[in-house]
């Protein structure tokens, strides 16, 4: 085992800020949708829009960071070991079996994570962003009499946005739980806070494979 610098400073800053914003957006969003009564409808809308704007700016920075550092490649889904990873969560984890994939700095995500995060980044987050922006600004074409861009109504936009929100809640629940499935119960959480994590050594009979894959959460 050796201590590696897995999550860099911007990565951690982005992760925690995004986490906070998404939780806050969830609370205010479900208040707007009528499930919660806390801020009051008008304040909830105001806060929701403000947090959404901040999140969009943050995501813009994060995209820039992912491309300039090449970290985006971490999220390329792979079939390799996908089944093994799934089987690990169904059986292996109860038998204290080793993780089927090895977490390294160059490959922090296991195959299931790659799949789920790629889905989040390519489908859910953009869908939420676009439907959210339309939600905020769908009146503008009519307001400025650009009739060709007129949006007839909010129904489809709102329903897509709501469905995405439910998916994010489900993701959030699973995500919180999977934090506890690292090498120890707290190792994943600790790594995301301080950046460093004890990672297993590379098997001696193989070169430290850049395409080997690692851990959870």
């Amino acid at each position: 085992m050796k201590k590696e610098y897995v999550y860099r400073r911007f990565e951690r800053f982005w992760h925690w800020t995004q986490a906070g914003l998404i939780v806050f957006l969830g609370l205010t969003g479900f208040e707007i949708h009528g499930y919660i009564h806390f801020f009051g409808f008008d304040e909830a809308v105001r806060y929701h829009n403000a947090a959404a704007t901040v999140l969009l700016v943050l995501v813009a920075f994060a995209i820039f960071w992912h491309f300039t550092t090449g970290e985006w490649k971490q999220y390329l889904p792979t079939w390799k070991n996908l089944r093994a990873q799934a089987m690990y969560y169904v059986f292996g984890i109860f038998r204290n079996a080793p993780h089927p994939t090895r977490k390294t700095v160059l490959s922090k995500l296991n195959p299931l994570q790659k799949l789920v995060y790629a889905g989040l980044k390519v489908l859910v987050i953009p869908t939420m962003g676009i439907s959210g922006i339309l939600y905020m600004f769908y009146r503008y074409p009519q307001r400025y009499e650009v009739l060709s861009l007129n949006v007839a109504g909010l129904e489809v936009i709102a329903e897509i946005h709501t469905l995405g929100a439910f998916l994010l809640v489900a993701f959030f629940i699973a995500h919180l739980y999977l934090i506890t499935t690292g090498r120890t119960v707290t190792s994943n959480l600790k790594a995301m806070i301080i950046g460093y994590e004890e990672l297993p050594d590379a098997p001696t009979n193989a070169p430290s494979a850049p395409n080997a894959t690692g851990d959870h959460s």
């Binding site: 707007i32 949708h33 009528g34 409808f41 109504g153 909010l154 129904e155 709102a158 329903e159 709501t162 469905l163 929100a165 439910f166 998916l167 809640v169 489900a170 629940i173 699973a174 739980y177």
Partner: peptide, 28 residues
Amino acid sequence: GFYLPGRDSNPWVETIGLSIVLLTLGAV
């Protein structure tokens, strides 16, 4: 004749969405 945020919801979206959340919670 229109969707009013806070008042309206699509029963399909609510049912599917809540099911996914509850199933996830149950599984976890």
